[in-house]
Amino acid sequence: MRPSTALSFVSIAASLLLEGCAAAPSVAVFGAAFPDWLFCIVGGVLGTAIVHVVLGKRGKRALLAPLALSYPALTAALAMAFWLLFFPH
């Protein structure tokens, strides 16, 4: 291994390890710090509930065939979308 390659590897590894030294992503609510992902999960669950109600009123709930698989996946997708929209760190 050439010295420049080894130096590059060490600098990349060090930068990845130092990434954990960043401030914790949290939101202060009434003096208490809550993690950002908690708000995103709540938004994902509420978004999935809204999708459930809308599809139920239109009679198209069968589009999400295995509900035990599609609702958790939809919750995760909406939570990640909320994370990207509201917390772009």
Rank of each mutant, 00 (worst) to 15 (best):
V51A: 15
V29S: 01
G20K: 10
F39A: 05
A68N: 07
S15Y: 15
I41E: 04
L69F: 09
A32F: 09
A6K: 07
L69M: 08
L7G: 07
S8F: 11
V53W: 10
W37Q: 12
C21N: 02
S11M: 10
P66W: 03
L7C: 05
A65K: 07
V10E: 12
L38S: 08
G20R: 12
S70Q: 11
S15Q: 13
V51S: 12
A32H: 07
H52Y: 14
F30C: 08
A73T: 13
L7N: 04
C40H: 10
L55Q: 08
L18C: 06
L74N: 06
W37F: 15
K57F: 14
Y71A: 02
C40P: 08
E19V: 03
F39K: 00
A32Y: 08
D36N: 05
L17I: 10
C40W: 11
P3F: 14
A28M: 02
Y71K: 01
P66I: 03
T48D: 04
V10M: 10
A28Y: 03
A13Y: 11
L18E: 09
W37V: 15
I12V: 15
L17F: 13
L64V: 03
G59A: 02
L69C: 08
S70I: 06
A6I: 14
W37H: 11
S8P: 00
L67A: 15
L18F: 12
L74H: 07
A14Y: 12
A23G: 05
G43F: 10
V51K: 02
V29D: 01
A6P: 00
S26E: 15
R58F: 13
R58D: 07
A68P: 01
W37S: 12
S8N: 07
R58S: 13
P66F: 09
I12S: 08
E19P: 00
F9S: 02
S70D: 04
S4I: 13
K57L: 15
A14H: 05
F30I: 08
A68E: 09
H52V: 06
F30E: 06
G56V: 05
W37L: 13
L16D: 10
P3Y: 14
I41V: 14
L74Q: 12
L46G: 07
L63K: 01
S8V: 07
G59C: 02
L55T: 14
H52P: 00
A62L: 00
L38Q: 04
P66S: 08
S11K: 05
C21L: 07
P25G: 11
K60R: 06
S70E: 07
G44I: 08
A49R: 01
A13Q: 13
G43C: 08
I50A: 15
P25N: 13
V10R: 12
A28P: 00
C21Y: 02
Y71E: 04
L17V: 07
P25Y: 11
S26Y: 09
S11C: 03
A14F: 11
L7V: 10
I41M: 09
A23T: 11
L69Y: 10
S26W: 06
G20C: 04
A14G: 00
L16H: 13
S8A: 14
L17N: 08
S15W: 13
